[in-house]
Design a protein around this nucleic acid. Structure first.
Length: 277
DNA sequence: GCGACAG
DNA sequence: ATCTTGTCGC
């Protein structure tokens, strides 16, 4: 009895989630629709990013953020951070059920407050069709909001025969300049995504996949064009701002503020060069 | 027992 | 996701 409740999500829940993914997957559009078709992306003026950051030692309290940047300047023109309580557990392959409701909320708030600022594309921290069942969080958010989405993961999700093995790492090593990439082909022969060297000095690639209303080629090219550092600026800003929001929120609740100033730029830990492009 | 495990 | 310091280079 207590034994069952202590374990992960109920099998029944996973089964429901799986069916929901299959249902929504049929609605994914994996081709360019409008401004994406222009090679120069003229007509593209706003790009967005979403992220969820957590309070340490707390698997429930988090900050969901949505930022909008102008393009091609990549300056933040809109920010929405909000503390939320996550109820669903994290299960690999079902990330969206934990985070996506709050991201949809943020998009809807923007639609009501300032529809003019609605981004023409959203960068999502996580995968799109590069996923166990071809329907990662970037697809999920895209279908629920009807906003074009790109999935950007920091590490390879090893599905459908894809493996971060010696051969894979060798391909990474051969990437020369920022913008270089190679396809990630699943066992079925379909290209599920691309490994992208996001700037000249980055050792670790980005794993880009289609979320919604976008071709893979466009997703990769646009991702590269939004990278001032390794992480695409929209996602990077969403991450920075949601973490800072948590820091300030905790400070208000009593704990001393670690530092009144912004954190010093952290040095690159492991091949995660963040030099300006 | 061992390796995997988006965030 | 989060915990974390130093350090080399421009």
């Amino acid at each position: 009895m207590a034994r069952k409740a202590a374990r992960g999500p109920q099998e029944e829940t996973l089964s429901l989630w799986k069916r929901e993914q299959a249902r929504l997957k049929a609605l994914v559009v994996d081709r360019d629709t409008e401004w994406q078709r222009d090679p120069a992306f003229s007509g593209l003026q706003r790009v967005g990013g979403v992220d969820v950051s957590f309070v340490k030692d707390d698997s429930v309290s988090a900050c969901a953020s949505l930022v909008v940047l102008n393009y091609p300047e990549l300056e933040v023109v809109y920010e929405d951070c909000r503390m939320v309580s996550l109820t669903a557990p994290y299960v690999s392959g079902y990330l969206a059920f934990r985070e996506v409701p709050f991201l949809v909320d943020a998009v809807q708030r923007l639609q009501e407050k300032d529809p003019q600022l609605m981004p023409q594309v959203l960068f999502v921290d996580g995968n799109g069709v590069l996923h166990h069942r071809g329907f990662g969080v970037a697809c999920h958010l895209g279908v629920l909001t009807d906003v074009p989405c790109i999935g950007v993961a920091k590490k390879l999700l090893q599905v459908d025969g894809l493996e971060n093995d010696a051969a894979h790492r060798e391909k990474i090593r051969l990437l020369k300049a920022g913008g270089d990439s190679f396809p990630l082909m699943g066992g079925s022969g379909a290209v599920l995504g691309m490994a992208l060297k996001s700037h000249d000095h980055s050792t670790k690639p980005l794993y880009v996949s289609v979320g919604h209303k976008m071709s893979l080629e466009t997703a990769v090219r646009l991702t590269h064009s939004c990278c001032r550092f390794r992480i695409p600026e929209p996602v990077r800003q969403a991450d920075i701002r949601s973490r800072d929001y948590i820091r300030r929120t905790l400070a208000v609740q009593g704990a001393p503020v670690p530092s009144g100033k912004a954190q010093r730029p952290k040095a690159c830990p492991k091949g995660v060069s963040e030099e300006p492009a």
